[in-house]
Amino acid sequence: MVRIVMCAITFALLSTHLQAADQEAGKNLYLNNCAQCHGPTAKGMASFPSLAGRDASYLKSRLETYRAGERVGANSGLMIPNARNLSDEDITNLSGFISQNFK
């Protein structure tokens, strides 16, 4: 029973997170900063990974990790400078936009 309640709470929090995202702001950030490497449909290009199909919480966590300057993969050296100046709101908008529009 506790597990069901925890799942429901987690789902509610993620839903609120996605609803709070400004889709237009996320779209602008993606097109102006991310699409050059991750592609216009977020399916990745060359060594840049696909973001399509990723949920908002995963994307948010990764962007926060890069913003903190932590290395988590071969492209960390490219992502850290790109994420460094993202605000919490930017990260919410980006992760919400990507997760909702590139499935």
Rank of each mutant, 00 (worst) to 15 (best):
L14F: 13
D22E: 06
L86D: 07
S99M: 06
A42D: 04
A52P: 06
I4R: 06
Y30L: 02
L13M: 12
S87L: 06
D55N: 15
N93F: 03
L13Y: 10
N33I: 04
S47P: 04
I91Q: 05
R71A: 12
A68P: 04
E89Y: 08
A21D: 06
A25M: 06
E24T: 14
P40M: 03
L63I: 08
R67T: 07
K60F: 14
S50W: 09
A83K: 02
A68L: 05
S87H: 03
S95D: 05
G26P: 05
T92E: 11
H17A: 12
N32C: 02
S99L: 05
G26C: 06
A12C: 07
T41W: 01
L14Y: 10
N93M: 11
Q19D: 03
F11G: 08
N82V: 02
A12S: 13
R67A: 13
M6L: 15
A20W: 01
F48M: 08
S95E: 04
C37V: 09
L78K: 08
M79S: 06
R71T: 13
N75L: 12
C34L: 03
Q23Y: 04
D22Q: 10
R3A: 15
Y30W: 07
A74T: 12
A25F: 00
S15G: 15
L31C: 02
G26H: 06
G73C: 10
A46C: 04
C37N: 12
E89F: 08
D88I: 01
M45R: 11
T92A: 13
S57M: 12
M6G: 05
V2T: 10
D22N: 15
T65D: 10
N101Q: 12
L14S: 14
N85R: 06
A46M: 15
R62T: 11
L13W: 14
L63M: 12
N93G: 11
R67V: 07
L29H: 11
T65A: 05
Y30P: 05
C34Q: 04
T92D: 07
S87V: 02
F102G: 00
F11N: 05
G44V: 02
L14G: 02
K103D: 08
S99Y: 02
R71Q: 10
K27S: 13
E89A: 15
R54C: 00
A35W: 00
L13H: 04
Y58I: 09
M79P: 07
